[in-house]
């Protein structure tokens, strides 16, 4: 896809693996751009879960971000060296 100007590429980790994304974009978008769609595991069924509503209502895309649990990755913006972990 076309690259917008003034975009800064930074690196972050998802479940320990170092990957790249664009600073300031929602974490979920950065994961999706890296081909990662399964963000967490459902505690009831053990199935993976990912983005559904994209605007913070369904809470399906939450993850632990810099040790803070249950962060909605569709709302939280990506920062340099962020540590993102599945729940």
């Amino acid at each position: 896809m076309e690259n917008q100007n003034h975009e800064k590429e930074i690196s972050f980790t998802f479940n320990g693996k170092r990957i790249k994304g664009i600073e300031g974009q929602p974490i979920a978008a950065a994961l999706m751009a890296n081909g990662i769609r399964a963000i967490r595991t459902c505690t009831v069924t053990g199935e993976p879960r990912g983005i559904y509503c994209g605007i913070g209502h369904c809470y399906e895309c939450r993850a632990t971000v810099n040790q803070k649990r249950n962060i909605r990755t569709c709302l939280k913006c990506l920062e340099e060296n962020m540590d993102i972990k599945s729940e």
Partner: peptide, 18 residues
């Protein structure tokens, strides 16, 4: 995973360009 609401699909395509 892979089922997405249409509004999210729209935002990811047109805004985030993913």
């Amino acid at each position: 995973v892979g089922v997405i609401a249409v509004g999210a699909a729209q935002t990811f395509t047109n805004l985030h360009r993913v």
